[in-house]
Each structure stands twice: as C-alpha cells, then as structure tokens.
C-alpha cells in the first residue's frame, strides 16, 4: 500500500514538473492555487497570532522596561547631582563663614594688642611723670638743704676766721643773723 502511494506520488510529481515546464510560467498554472491560498491562510494566521499575542507584547515589555530603567537612572543621576550641588554650596558657605570668623579673630586680636600697648604706654608715661615729679621734689629739697648747710658752714667758717683773727669768740647768734642777711642779699641779687 505504502509502495503504491509513494509510486503514484512520485509519478505525479514528475508528471507535474513536466506539465509545468511545458506551460511556461508555473505561476499561471491554476492547479495548486487553491492549495497555496489555503496553506498561506493557515500559516500566516498562525504566525500572526503568535506575533500578536506573544512576541510583540514581549518585545514591547522589554523596550518599555529599558526605557523606564533609563528614565529612573537619569532621575537618580539628577537627584544625586542636586545633592552634590547642595553639598558644594554648604561647603562653600562653611568656608566663607570660616574666613569671616578668621578675619574677625584677627581684627579683634589686633585691637586688643593695640589697646594693651596703649595701656602700657600710658602706664609708663604716668610712671615717668611720677618719677620726674619725685626727682624734682628731691632736687628742691636738696637745694634748700644745701642752702641751709651753706649757711651753717659759712657761720662756722666765719666764726673760725673771727677766732683766728681776733682770738675771741663772737656771739653765735649775731653771726647767724649777719650770714642770713648776706645770703638774703645774694639771693636778691641773683
């Protein structure tokens, strides 16, 4: 049975080819037109449903997933960039603050030092004044003392001279009075 079928099919096959070759264009031979349209309908419908129901949605899901992933990544990158910018701003403001503070500290220190120097200068000047005042006073005192001493020495010298010359003692009070008178005159002359 199988042999017969194969024989007939092979025979038909060769007959067919002979017939088609004789016809010129096998495309215009209508023997298998119906068959071709029939199988085309079946096979194309099958591939259409496969593509429409399985493959296209799958590819679409893939592409959408990638797009959303890319969008997410870009958003994340943007937010990170913003954060970085904020940090940078913060850092800059911190540096500015620090600079300002440093300047403040510097100026304060300078001011304090100046004040200190001024205070010390004042103190020293006051001390110098005091010392000068004390020294002047002392000089004055010395002056008066020396004058008195000069008087006493003069009196003694005079009394000794008188003794040497006149060999007698003179009244001390009188000598004193005379000396003081002379001194007064001198003073007036000066």
């Amino acid at each position: 049975m199988i042999k017969i079928i194969s024989l007939t099919t092979s025979l038909l096959l060769t007959l067919n080819t002979v017939f088609a070759a004789e016809a010129g264009m096998p495309q215009l031979d209508p023997t298998y037109w119906a068959s071709q349209v029939f199988w085309l309908t079946i096979i194309f419908s099958a591939i259409y449903f496969l593509i429409a129901k399985i493959f296209v949605p799958k590819i679409k899901v893939n592409i959408d997933a990638r797009e959303s992933q890319i969008r997410k990544d870009i958003d994340e990158a943007n937010s990170l960039k913003e954060e970085a910018d904020k940090k940078l701003q913060k850092y800059n403001s911190l540096i500015d603050e620090a600079k300002l503070e440093a300047r403040k500290i510097l100026s304060e220190g300078r001011k304090k030092i100046n004040e200190d120097i001024q205070a010390k200068k004042d103190q020293i000047e006051k001390d110098i004044q005091k010392e000068t005042f004390g020294a002047t006073k002392e000089i004055e005192k010395f002056k008066i003392n020396s004058l008195n001493k000069v008087n006493v020495i003069s009196e003694e010298i005079i009394s000794e001279i008188i003794q040497d010359i006149f060999k007698e003692d003179l009244n001390k009070s009188s000598i004193k009075a005379t000396v003081s008178e002379v001194m007064k005159e001198r003073k007036n002359q000066i």
Binding site: A20, A21, Q27, Y32
Partner: peptide, 15 residues
C-alpha cells in the same frame, strides 16, 4: 529540464 530557468517555480505535491 533542469536548465529551464522556470523549473524552480514549479509547485508539486508533498505527501
């Protein structure tokens, strides 16, 4: 027959 350039377009039954 094999050299006929239109031979390749022949449709034949399988099965």
């Amino acid at each position: 027959m094999a050299t006929n350039p239109m031979h390749q377009f022949n449709v034949y039954k399988i099965g």
